[in-house]
Protein backbone atom coordinates (compact mmCIF):
# COMPACT_ATOMS: atom_id res chain seq x y z
CA UNK A 1 0.00 0.00 0.00
CA UNK A 2 1.48 3.29 -1.03
CA UNK A 3 0.28 6.83 -0.95
CA UNK A 4 2.34 9.88 -1.57
CA UNK A 5 1.48 13.29 -2.92
CA UNK A 6 2.44 16.90 -3.08
CA UNK A 7 0.07 19.24 -1.32
CA UNK A 8 -1.61 22.22 -2.87
CA UNK A 9 -4.36 24.55 -1.77
CA UNK A 10 -2.96 24.18 1.73
CA UNK A 11 -4.88 27.10 3.17
CA UNK A 12 -8.19 25.58 2.14
CA UNK A 13 -7.10 22.17 3.34
CA UNK A 14 -6.26 23.69 6.73
CA UNK A 15 -9.60 25.45 6.93
CA UNK A 16 -11.48 22.30 6.02
CA UNK A 17 -9.56 20.40 8.68
CA UNK A 18 -10.33 23.07 11.25
CA UNK A 19 -14.04 22.94 10.40
CA UNK A 20 -14.12 19.15 10.68
CA UNK A 21 -12.11 19.05 13.86
CA UNK A 22 -14.59 21.30 15.62
CA UNK A 23 -17.07 18.41 15.34
CA UNK A 24 -14.90 15.38 16.01
CA UNK A 25 -11.32 14.47 16.80
CA UNK A 26 -10.87 11.71 14.26
CA UNK A 27 -11.89 11.55 10.63
CA UNK A 28 -12.24 8.67 8.25
CA UNK A 29 -10.34 9.53 5.10
CA UNK A 30 -10.74 7.62 1.89
CA UNK A 31 -8.42 8.32 -1.00
CA UNK A 32 -8.92 6.78 -4.38
CA UNK A 33 -7.84 7.53 -7.92
CA UNK A 34 -10.16 10.47 -8.41
CA UNK A 35 -11.60 11.60 -5.10
CA UNK A 36 -10.59 12.10 -1.53
CA UNK A 37 -13.36 11.92 1.03
CA UNK A 38 -13.28 13.08 4.62
CA UNK A 39 -16.02 11.72 6.83
CA UNK A 40 -16.70 12.74 10.35
CA UNK A 41 -19.34 10.91 12.38
CA UNK A 42 -19.49 12.04 16.00
CA UNK A 43 -21.32 9.97 18.58
CA UNK A 44 -23.61 12.90 19.13
CA UNK A 45 -23.96 15.71 16.67
CA UNK A 46 -23.79 16.44 13.02
CA UNK A 47 -22.08 14.29 10.42
CA UNK A 48 -19.93 15.57 7.62
CA UNK A 49 -19.18 13.96 4.31
CA UNK A 50 -16.67 15.98 2.32
CA UNK A 51 -15.99 14.67 -1.14
CA UNK A 52 -13.27 16.50 -3.00
CA UNK A 53 -11.55 15.95 -6.30
CA UNK A 54 -8.07 14.58 -5.67
CA UNK A 55 -6.48 17.42 -7.58
CA UNK A 56 -8.24 19.90 -5.33
CA UNK A 57 -5.79 19.17 -2.53
CA UNK A 58 -3.14 16.99 -4.08
CA UNK A 59 -0.92 16.98 -7.11
CA UNK A 60 1.49 14.44 -8.50
CA UNK A 61 -0.09 11.83 -6.30
CA UNK A 62 0.60 8.16 -6.40
CA UNK A 63 -1.68 5.55 -4.86
CA UNK A 64 -1.08 1.85 -4.85
CA UNK A 65 -3.59 -0.32 -3.10
CA UNK A 66 -4.88 -3.84 -3.48
CA UNK A 67 -8.42 -2.62 -2.95
CA UNK A 68 -10.88 -1.81 -5.67
CA UNK A 69 -10.39 1.57 -7.33
CA UNK A 70 -7.02 1.88 -5.67
CA UNK A 71 -8.74 2.87 -2.46
CA UNK A 72 -7.01 3.49 0.83
CA UNK A 73 -9.02 3.99 4.01
CA UNK A 74 -7.42 5.75 6.93
CA UNK A 75 -8.38 6.91 10.34
CA UNK A 76 -6.75 10.27 10.85
CA UNK A 77 -6.63 12.47 13.95
CA UNK A 78 -7.62 15.96 12.88
CA UNK A 79 -5.83 18.11 15.41
CA UNK A 80 -2.33 16.90 14.53
CA UNK A 81 -3.23 17.26 10.85
CA UNK A 82 -4.38 20.80 11.47
CA UNK A 83 -1.18 21.59 13.32
CA UNK A 84 0.95 20.13 10.54
CA UNK A 85 -0.96 22.08 7.90
CA UNK A 86 -0.32 25.26 9.85
CA UNK A 87 3.38 24.58 9.53
CA UNK A 88 2.90 24.01 5.82
CA UNK A 89 1.22 27.33 5.19
CA UNK A 90 3.51 29.77 3.44
CA UNK A 91 5.92 26.95 2.77
CA UNK A 92 7.80 26.47 -0.44
CA UNK A 93 6.57 22.93 -0.83
CA UNK A 94 4.87 20.26 1.20
CA UNK A 95 4.33 16.60 0.56
CA UNK A 96 2.45 13.84 2.29
CA UNK A 97 3.47 10.22 2.45
CA UNK A 98 1.98 7.14 4.08
CA UNK A 99 4.77 5.25 5.76
CA UNK A 100 5.73 3.40 8.91
CA UNK A 101 7.76 4.51 11.86
CA UNK A 102 8.65 2.28 14.77
CA UNK A 103 6.22 -0.24 13.33
CA UNK A 104 3.29 2.15 13.38
CA UNK A 105 1.71 3.74 10.32
CA UNK A 106 2.06 7.46 9.97
CA UNK A 107 1.31 10.15 7.47
CA UNK A 108 4.55 11.99 7.15
CA UNK A 109 4.30 15.58 5.98
CA UNK A 110 7.58 16.99 4.75
CA UNK A 111 7.61 20.76 4.51
CA UNK A 112 10.31 22.89 3.00
CA UNK A 113 10.10 26.38 4.29
CA UNK A 114 11.91 29.58 4.98
CA UNK A 115 11.17 30.72 8.45
CA UNK A 116 11.17 34.35 7.52
CA UNK A 117 11.31 37.06 10.06
CA UNK A 118 8.50 39.50 10.35
CA UNK A 119 10.46 42.67 10.80
CA UNK A 120 12.40 42.27 7.62
CA UNK A 121 9.81 40.59 5.51
CA UNK A 122 11.20 42.18 2.41
CA UNK A 123 14.65 40.80 3.04
CA UNK A 124 13.29 37.38 3.71
CA UNK A 125 11.13 37.29 0.65
CA UNK A 126 13.92 38.47 -1.57
CA UNK A 127 16.10 35.70 -0.29
CA UNK A 128 13.28 33.28 -0.98
CA UNK A 129 13.13 34.57 -4.49
CA UNK A 130 16.89 34.31 -4.81
CA UNK A 131 16.86 30.76 -3.58
CA UNK A 132 14.00 29.88 -5.88
CA UNK A 133 15.88 31.42 -8.76
CA UNK A 134 18.92 29.35 -7.94
CA UNK A 135 16.82 26.24 -7.84
CA UNK A 136 15.26 27.02 -11.14
CA UNK A 137 18.61 27.59 -12.71
CA UNK A 138 19.76 24.28 -11.41
CA UNK A 139 16.60 22.59 -12.52
CA UNK A 140 16.80 24.03 -16.02
CA UNK A 141 20.40 23.23 -16.48
CA UNK A 142 21.34 19.73 -15.43
CA UNK A 143 24.97 20.68 -15.70
CA UNK A 144 24.72 23.68 -13.45
CA UNK A 145 27.38 24.08 -10.86
CA UNK A 146 26.81 23.77 -7.19
CA UNK A 147 25.26 26.69 -5.48
CA UNK A 148 28.54 27.46 -3.80
CA UNK A 149 30.27 27.70 -7.13
CA UNK A 150 28.31 30.66 -8.36
CA UNK A 151 29.07 32.74 -5.33
CA UNK A 152 28.65 36.10 -6.92
CA UNK A 153 29.15 39.37 -5.13
CA UNK A 154 25.41 39.60 -4.72
CA UNK A 155 25.39 36.32 -2.85
CA UNK A 156 28.08 37.42 -0.44
CA UNK A 157 26.24 40.57 0.29
CA UNK A 158 23.08 38.81 1.40
CA UNK A 159 24.74 35.95 3.18
CA UNK A 160 24.76 37.76 6.50
CA UNK A 161 21.03 38.01 6.79
CA UNK A 162 20.16 35.19 4.51
CA UNK A 163 17.26 33.08 5.63
CA UNK A 164 17.94 29.43 5.29
CA UNK A 165 15.75 26.71 4.05
CA UNK A 166 14.45 24.43 6.73
CA UNK A 167 12.93 21.03 6.32
CA UNK A 168 10.15 20.33 8.77
CA UNK A 169 8.82 16.81 9.12
CA UNK A 170 5.47 16.43 10.82
CA UNK A 171 4.54 12.82 11.53
CA UNK A 172 0.83 12.29 12.05
CA UNK A 173 -0.24 8.97 13.54
CA UNK A 174 -2.83 7.16 11.43
CA UNK A 175 -4.58 3.83 11.35
CA UNK A 176 -5.18 1.96 8.15
CA UNK A 177 -8.72 0.64 7.98
CA UNK A 178 -9.68 -2.64 6.42
CA UNK A 179 -12.32 -2.24 3.71
CA UNK A 180 -14.68 -4.50 5.63
CA UNK A 181 -14.72 -2.20 8.60
CA UNK A 182 -15.87 0.73 6.54
CA UNK A 183 -18.23 -0.87 4.05
CA UNK A 184 -21.10 -0.70 6.50
CA UNK A 185 -20.75 3.05 6.97
CA UNK A 186 -23.22 4.61 4.62
CA UNK A 187 -23.97 8.15 3.75
CA UNK A 188 -27.40 8.98 5.21
CA UNK A 189 -30.35 8.94 2.85
CA UNK A 190 -32.82 11.72 3.30
CA UNK A 191 -36.09 12.35 1.48
CA UNK A 192 -36.39 15.17 -1.01
CA UNK A 193 -36.29 18.46 0.87
CA UNK A 194 -39.30 20.75 1.24
CA UNK A 195 -37.26 23.92 1.13
CA UNK A 196 -33.82 24.74 -0.18
CA UNK A 197 -32.33 28.11 0.44
CA UNK A 198 -28.97 29.83 0.34
CA UNK A 199 -27.89 30.79 3.83
CA UNK A 200 -26.93 34.37 4.72
CA UNK A 201 -23.25 35.05 5.54
CA UNK A 202 -22.32 32.38 8.04
CA UNK A 203 -20.36 34.64 10.35
CA UNK A 204 -23.51 36.70 10.85
CA UNK A 205 -25.69 33.65 11.28
CA UNK A 206 -23.21 32.18 13.73
CA UNK A 207 -22.94 35.34 15.82
CA UNK A 208 -26.69 35.51 16.23
CA UNK A 209 -27.10 31.77 16.81
CA UNK A 210 -24.41 31.81 19.48
CA UNK A 211 -26.07 34.73 21.21
CA UNK A 212 -29.43 32.99 21.20
CA UNK A 213 -27.87 29.85 22.58
CA UNK A 214 -26.21 31.79 25.36
CA UNK A 215 -29.50 33.43 26.23
CA UNK A 216 -31.14 30.06 26.53
CA UNK A 217 -28.38 28.87 28.82
CA UNK A 218 -29.52 31.39 31.44
CA UNK A 219 -31.67 29.11 33.56
CA UNK A 220 -29.06 26.73 34.89
CA UNK A 221 -29.90 23.20 34.02
CA UNK A 222 -30.79 23.69 30.40
CA UNK A 223 -27.49 22.59 29.00
CA UNK A 224 -28.44 21.91 25.43
CA UNK A 225 -30.80 24.58 24.22
CA UNK A 226 -32.48 23.96 20.91
CA UNK A 227 -32.73 26.54 18.21
CA UNK A 228 -35.60 26.44 15.79
CA UNK A 229 -34.58 26.98 12.21
CA UNK A 230 -37.19 27.56 9.55
CA UNK A 231 -37.16 28.52 5.93
CA UNK A 232 -39.69 29.05 3.20
CA UNK A 233 -39.53 28.95 -0.56
CA UNK A 234 -39.88 32.73 -0.69
CA UNK A 235 -36.39 33.67 0.39
CA UNK A 236 -36.81 33.81 4.13
CA UNK A 237 -34.92 32.14 6.90
CA UNK A 238 -35.99 32.34 10.51
CA UNK A 239 -33.92 31.59 13.57
CA UNK A 240 -35.79 31.33 16.82
CA UNK A 241 -35.13 30.48 20.44
CA UNK A 242 -38.11 29.67 22.58
CA UNK A 243 -37.70 28.96 26.27
CA UNK A 244 -39.95 29.38 29.29
CA UNK A 245 -38.83 32.95 29.68
CA UNK A 246 -37.86 34.10 26.23
CA UNK A 247 -39.10 33.87 22.70
CA UNK A 248 -36.82 35.62 20.27
CA UNK A 249 -36.46 35.30 16.57
CA UNK A 250 -34.46 36.77 13.75
CA UNK A 251 -35.65 36.68 10.19
CA UNK A 252 -33.63 37.06 7.04
CA UNK A 253 -35.44 37.80 3.84
CA UNK A 254 -34.51 38.22 0.23
CA UNK A 255 -32.42 35.08 0.23
CA UNK A 256 -32.19 32.95 -2.84
CA UNK A 257 -34.04 29.68 -3.31
CA UNK A 258 -31.91 28.13 -6.05
CA UNK A 259 -33.55 26.52 -9.04
CA UNK A 260 -33.55 22.74 -9.09
CA UNK A 261 -31.76 20.97 -11.87
CA UNK A 262 -34.38 18.63 -13.41
CA UNK A 263 -31.63 16.34 -14.65
CA UNK A 264 -30.69 15.48 -11.10
CA UNK A 265 -34.20 14.70 -9.90
CA UNK A 266 -36.07 11.40 -9.88
CA UNK A 267 -39.35 13.21 -10.31
CA UNK A 268 -40.70 16.07 -12.39
CA UNK A 269 -39.96 19.44 -10.83
CA UNK A 270 -43.69 20.10 -10.56
CA UNK A 271 -44.11 17.21 -8.17
CA UNK A 272 -41.14 18.06 -6.04
CA UNK A 273 -42.06 18.92 -2.43
CA UNK A 274 -40.39 22.31 -2.75
CA UNK A 275 -42.70 23.25 -5.59
CA UNK A 276 -45.65 22.56 -3.32
CA UNK A 277 -44.10 24.59 -0.54
CA UNK A 278 -43.58 27.49 -2.90
CA UNK A 279 -47.18 27.35 -4.04
CA UNK A 280 -48.38 27.42 -0.45
CA UNK A 281 -46.89 30.87 -0.05
CA UNK A 282 -44.47 32.62 2.29
CA UNK A 283 -46.34 31.50 5.39
CA UNK A 284 -45.48 27.88 4.69
CA UNK A 285 -42.31 27.18 6.64
CA UNK A 286 -40.24 24.05 6.88
CA UNK A 287 -38.78 23.82 10.37
CA UNK A 288 -36.28 21.75 12.27
CA UNK A 289 -34.80 22.12 15.72
CA UNK A 290 -31.07 21.92 16.18
CA UNK A 291 -28.83 21.80 19.20
CA UNK A 292 -27.38 25.27 19.73
CA UNK A 293 -23.85 24.12 20.50
CA UNK A 294 -23.73 21.57 17.72
CA UNK A 295 -25.06 24.17 15.29
CA UNK A 296 -22.29 26.50 16.36
CA UNK A 297 -19.74 23.84 15.50
CA UNK A 298 -21.41 23.21 12.16
CA UNK A 299 -21.30 26.90 11.30
CA UNK A 300 -17.57 26.97 11.75
CA UNK A 301 -17.51 25.67 8.18
CA UNK A 302 -18.04 29.31 7.25
CA UNK A 303 -14.30 29.76 7.34
CA UNK A 304 -14.17 27.93 4.01
CA UNK A 305 -15.96 30.91 2.48
CA UNK A 306 -18.12 28.73 0.33
CA UNK A 307 -21.70 29.16 -0.78
CA UNK A 308 -23.98 27.24 1.56
CA UNK A 309 -27.34 25.78 0.54
CA UNK A 310 -29.55 24.53 3.34
CA UNK A 311 -32.11 21.86 2.54
CA UNK A 312 -34.98 21.54 4.99
CA UNK A 313 -37.17 18.46 5.25
CA UNK A 314 -39.91 19.78 7.47
CA UNK A 315 -39.71 18.42 11.02
CA UNK A 316 -37.31 15.79 9.78
CA UNK A 317 -33.85 16.80 8.61
CA UNK A 318 -31.53 19.61 7.72
CA UNK A 319 -28.69 19.20 5.26
CA UNK A 320 -26.12 21.82 4.38
CA UNK A 321 -24.23 21.71 1.11
CA UNK A 322 -21.08 23.79 1.26
CA UNK A 323 -19.62 24.55 -2.15
CA UNK A 324 -15.90 25.05 -1.67
CA UNK A 325 -14.54 27.36 -4.32
CA UNK A 326 -11.43 26.50 -6.28
CA UNK A 327 -9.23 29.51 -5.91
CA UNK A 328 -6.59 28.58 -8.40
CA UNK A 329 -8.91 27.13 -11.03
CA UNK A 330 -12.13 29.05 -11.41
CA UNK A 331 -13.43 26.80 -14.17
CA UNK A 332 -13.22 23.63 -12.11
CA UNK A 333 -16.35 22.23 -10.58
CA UNK A 334 -16.78 23.18 -6.94
CA UNK A 335 -16.16 20.55 -4.35
CA UNK A 336 -18.99 19.84 -1.97
CA UNK A 337 -18.93 19.35 1.76
CA UNK A 338 -22.18 17.90 3.05
CA UNK A 339 -23.36 18.41 6.60
CA UNK A 340 -26.12 16.23 7.97
CA UNK A 341 -27.12 18.47 10.82
CA UNK A 342 -28.38 16.66 13.86
CA UNK A 343 -31.96 17.74 14.24
CA UNK A 344 -34.79 17.22 16.66
CA UNK A 345 -38.48 17.20 15.93
CA UNK A 346 -40.59 19.78 17.64
Amino acid sequence: MRFRTELKNIRTFAKLTAALSSLEKIAWVRVSDDTVRFTVIPDMGSQVWASLAMDFLFEGYNIQSAEANNTINLELPLQPLQRALKSAQNSMSASLRLTKKDGLPILSMVITTMTGEKGTAAGASSSVAAAAATRNRNADDPFADDEDMNLGPEHLETSLRREHEKVITQDIPVRVLHPETVETIMQPKVREPDVHIQLPPLLQLKAISDRFTKLALVPPGNKSPKLELSANMHGSLRLRINTETTDISSVWSGLENPELDPAQLDMPVDEHPSTKFREMGPEKWASVRVDGKDWSRVLSVGRLEGRVIACFADDHALILYVYVPHYDDASAEDSVVTYYVQSYSA
Binding site: E75, K101, H164, I168, D171
Partner: peptide, 17 residues
Amino acid sequence: AVLKKPLQTSIAVEADE
Protein backbone atom coordinates in the same frame (compact mmCIF):
# COMPACT_ATOMS: atom_id res chain seq x y z
CA ALA B 1 -5.01 4.81 21.32
CA VAL B 2 -2.30 5.16 18.70
CA LEU B 3 -4.24 7.98 17.12
CA LYS B 4 -3.89 9.96 20.32
CA LYS B 5 -0.15 10.05 19.99
CA PRO B 6 1.07 13.59 19.63
CA LEU B 7 2.31 14.99 16.40
CA GLN B 8 5.98 14.24 16.09
CA THR B 9 7.90 17.10 14.59
CA SER B 10 11.41 17.18 13.28
CA ILE B 11 13.07 20.28 11.89
CA ALA B 12 16.31 20.15 10.00
CA VAL B 13 18.33 23.34 10.21
CA GLU B 14 21.35 23.85 8.01
CA ALA B 15 24.61 24.12 9.85
CA ASP B 16 25.19 27.32 7.90
CA GLU B 17 22.36 28.96 9.73
